[in-house]
Amino acid sequence: MSGPAAGAKSPQAGGPRPPQPRRPGGRPPGPPPRGGLPRLRITLPERLPLRAVLIAVTALAVLVGGGSWAVYGSSWFRAERVTVGGTVQLTPAQVERAAGVPLGGALVSVDTGKARKRLLAALPRIKDAEVARSWPHTITVKVTERTASAVLRTGSRFTEVDRDGVRFATVDRAPRGVPLVQLTPDQSAGVQHFGTKRLLQAAIAVSADLPQSVHGKATAIRVRSYDGITVELTGGRDVLWGSAEQGARKAAVLSALMTARPHATHYDVSAPTAPAASGS
């Protein structure tokens, strides 16, 4: 019976492994990958030719320099005009002057944030503004103007006040359809507690809460106390509003009441759960 020579150790028994063939370059082949697919090795050159590196750096510098010159130094992207949108009472020329956008220089150099700040500081009628670049030659300005919810008499002139209580303009004539706030406070402890500023804010809130069908007919809002606000309407009519609280509910009740009693001269929604109308 033939077999391995006595004393010979097989690789399974822990004996020396037979020599393995070497690849060109001196490295023995690694174990075959799972799945039986050969491994691919891609060898990149360790160093690029110096000439290629210089050419790449030069090309990049030309691109960066050319782009910077095109944006900052050429006439391709100059700030040449300002366009204005959103004006109602203001004119585009007023807005453009207040923005103070420098023309003739690079469009990218225009500080849009500073232009917006100049607008808001110079024109209180502007509630908000957007200033942006419109390539290649334009700065666009879009403004949102404040809307008067009430006016205050200031001597022979009128001060417009928006729904936030901001006094933003003084005009010679009161805007049509905007009620005049008349502060005629009594000397009660409530008035001393709230002060005229709080009473004015309450009047502004009432004006903002009036139904659209009624707002244009309101001629004045008389304020005697915090819960003593009366709205005067055209045709000698009036509405006892009470306090500025529950404004939306009072507005809905007033609309329904005026529909049911269109010829009444006095409406009372100070207690919206128990409204009343009188006169004819």
Rank of each mutant, 00 (worst) to 15 (best):
H266M: 05
P179E: 04
P175M: 11
P21M: 05
V253T: 11
L254D: 04
Y226M: 07
T265Y: 01
V269K: 04
K114I: 09
I229C: 09
L107F: 11
T196S: 11
G86R: 03
K117I: 11
P31T: 08
R23F: 02
A61T: 13
S68C: 10
A256R: 12
W241E: 15
L107Q: 11
A106C: 07
D209M: 13
R237K: 15
T154K: 10
S188Q: 13
G86C: 08
A169T: 14
A244T: 14
P211I: 11
I221K: 08
R97M: 10
D268E: 08
T259A: 10
A121S: 09
T43S: 07
R153Q: 12
L60P: 03
Q246G: 03
A106L: 12
A148N: 03
T58R: 04
A8T: 07
K9H: 04
E96T: 10
L60K: 06
G235P: 09
P19A: 00
P16L: 12
G155W: 12
D227V: 04
Q201P: 04
H193P: 00
A56D: 08
V171F: 10
T144C: 02
M258N: 07
L257R: 01
A52R: 09
G7H: 02
P38R: 14
K142Y: 05
R116A: 15
L200K: 08
L40N: 02
P45I: 06
P38E: 01
G67F: 00
A79L: 04
V161H: 00
A122Q: 06
L120F: 04
D164S: 11
D162P: 10
A115W: 04
P19I: 02
W241M: 15
G247I: 13
S149F: 13
L37C: 06
P31L: 05
I139H: 03
E96G: 09
L40I: 00
Y72C: 06
T138V: 12
A203T: 14
G165T: 14
V108H: 02
L90H: 02
P175I: 06
Q246Y: 12
E46I: 03
R125F: 01
L90P: 00
Y267N: 08
I55W: 12
Q187P: 01
W69S: 05
V191M: 04
S149P: 08
D209C: 08
P185W: 13
R34F: 06
V95M: 05
R157T: 05
G247Q: 15
K127D: 09
A56T: 11
R261P: 00
V206F: 09
P45C: 04
K250W: 14
Q182T: 11
F194A: 09
R17F: 07
T159P: 07
